[in-house]
């Protein structure tokens, strides 16, 4: 599996897939996609990188421990639910704002933050399992 071609291509493939996963995450509200799928794509991207280059580079590239990423995701998801408390509406009510950036209206919402949390949990949890399963004896 560790051919030169694969090892050379893997980082680009991973980068592309990560980018794609974000795209899938963000478009999820209106078209097929979302946090779960995006997270799974990102997790497979990291798995490809791991198979090609070994665990250490993946851990290095991630910077944080994958479980930290997952925990951050869970925290953000909770936070997205709790924002509604400030607005005095029931827990988890979706709240939207439409700030305009360079003349373009960008819809932002707690729902998006929540989906981002889902994304991070899925990436973090699956990556940490995959990385832990790969042998670390080198």
């Amino acid at each position: 599996m560790n051919t030169v071609i694969f090892r050379t291509l893997a980082p680009f493939l991973t980068a592309l897939m990560l980018l794609f996963s974000l795209f899938v995450l963000l478009r999820g509200h209106n078209e097929p996609g979302g946090g779960f799928i995006g997270g799974l794509i990102a997790a497979s991207a990291l798995a490809i990188y791991g198979i090609a280059r070994g665990i250490r580079p993946v851990r290095h590239a991630l910077w944080f421990h994958p479980m930290t990423i997952a925990a951050t995701g869970l925290f953000l998801a909770c936070l997205a639910g709790l924002v509604s408390m400030v607005a005095a509406v029931p827990f988890m009510t979706g709240l939207w704002i439409y700030p305009s950036l360079f003349g373009v209206e960008i819809p932002l919402s707690t729902v998006m933050l929540f989906d981002f949390g889902v994304y991070l949990v899925v990436v973090g949890a699956i990556t940490s399992i995959a990385l832990a399963l790969e042998r670390e004896d080198f």
């Binding site: 078209e31 996609g33 995701g73 988890m92 729902v111 889902v118 949990v121």
Partner: peptide
């Protein structure tokens, strides 16, 4: 405000379920 019903259910209508799931 979402056209993808599946995703809207996951993150909004049944968001608390999803929170439990993640």
């Amino acid at each position: 405000h979402g056209a993808n019903v599946v995703n809207v259910i996951i993150v909004d209508f049944r968001g608390t379920d999803t929170l439990g799931e993640i």
